[in-house]
Amino acid sequence: MVDLIVLLVLLALGYGFGRYAEKTHYRSIIKREKLLRKIPAIASKFPPMYRNPPETILVTGGIVISVDYFKRFVASLRNIIGGRITSYESLLDRARREAILRMKEQARDQGGSMVFNVKIETASISKGRKNTIGSVEVFAYGTALLIKSN
């Protein structure tokens, strides 16, 4: 009985805070994506040829994000039945977009005008505690081109 009450409280907290955080985060992501659209991130390996070869620098962006209790509970039930764990999908989506944004912000601060050969890497950093996804790191990196206006 006590277990049940603890569980319900944790679920309510996780749901309330998690949902609020997700909403504000998405709002911020969409706003910043719009601002940084002028710095395209390209996954292609080879940059275009320029008459004045641009300078290149490595830019990175990383984030560690944690899943809330509610999402983890839903996912643990999903583990029994199987199927699409939608609660984690939005989490990873947010983390990837945030990492790319941070990479682009770094490129902007260094004066880059586009980022080439973007790679995204995802790692679960609290593995070992049974088979749960605790916190996930998403790391994005690429080469920023500093194109001089000729």
């Binding site: 277990d3 039930l77 029994i80 088979n131 749960t132």
Partner: peptide, 12 residues
Amino acid sequence: GASGQGLTDQIL
């Protein structure tokens, strides 16, 4: 053991 989470498992 199925869900892999202590409290959930106990309730189940």
